[in-house]
């Protein structure tokens, strides 16, 4: 547990001092939302129904970029090799990285979601508790899968192109469930989203455990 927290603290401190990925990821998130909305050109009354899809598509892509960066950063100066020589279980490294990536996603959402409420006239306040739960579940699941495959992609030849290829198909059930859950939450509370939320929880548990077990095979040399 302690190494996990140490890695989480390290990643967040690096981010806080440079604010590089956070800044670029935030702008990218807002940009994607604008691009998607403009491309759809919704009528004002149809705009709120667009919100779930627009939100999750922009999170998937900003998450992709942000999490990829977090491993490319470890490649510079062979930081990951240093981490691995430390007497730490690779599974703890995975957990720390996962937590840091989930925090990064959550911070992005904290900016993008209110803006979506503004741009797409979605009424967020009454649905806030349910919405937060869905966002959190989506973050953890996406970070669980993306952390594992970012480590894979960072160590192959075709780094930048490989991560989306590997990650997007695997993350599709998460995207479907998250969009359906967000839709249900925005239109009628968490009760209608029970099935979709169950899928999200299953996704989180399954891939967090699988990543925790398999990460050692990815980073072993």
């Amino acid at each position: 547990m302690r190494p996990t927290l140490a890695i989480l603290a390290k990643d967040l401190r690096i981010e806080w001092r440079t604010r590089e990925s956070l800044a670029s990821v935030l702008v990218l998130g807002v940009l994607l939302m604008v691009v998607l909305t403009v491309a759809h050109d919704p009528a004002p009354e149809a705009a709120p129904s667009l919100a779930p899809a627009v939100l999750w598509v922009s999170f998937v892509f900003t998450g992709l970029v942000g999490i990829q960066r977090s491993f490319l950063l470890e490649r510079e100066n062979d930081c990951l090799a240093g981490l691995l020589t430390a007497p730490v279980d690779p599974a703890d490294i995975y957990a720390g990285k996962l937590a840091a990536n989930a925090v990064l996603l959550a911070v992005t959402q904290a900016v993008v979601v209110p803006l979506a409420g503004l741009f797409l006239h979605a009424d967020l306040w009454p649905a806030l508790p349910g919405l937060l739960a869905v966002l959190l579940l989506g973050d953890v699941g996406f970070a669980a899968l993306a952390t594992l495959f970012a480590a894979v992609a960072a160590r192959t030849r075709a780094r930048e192109t490989l991560l989306p290829l590997l990650l997007l198909p695997l993350a599709l059930p998460l995207v479907i469930a998250a969009v359906q859950a967000t839709k249900a939450v925005l239109t009628g509370g968490l009760g209608g989203a029970r099935e979709a939320v169950a899928v999200l929880v299953a996704f989180d548990v399954m891939f967090a455990v699988a990543g925790w077990l398999l990460f050692a095979y990815v980073v072993r040399d």
Partner: peptide
Amino acid sequence: FGGEDEAVRRYAAVLGVIGVLDIPLIRVSV
């Protein structure tokens, strides 16, 4: 595109396992 060495075989195996775990989730989510 991963390359020919032993690492890529391990990565592919990890993906093979994750892929099959994904199948029930896809089934429910669709």
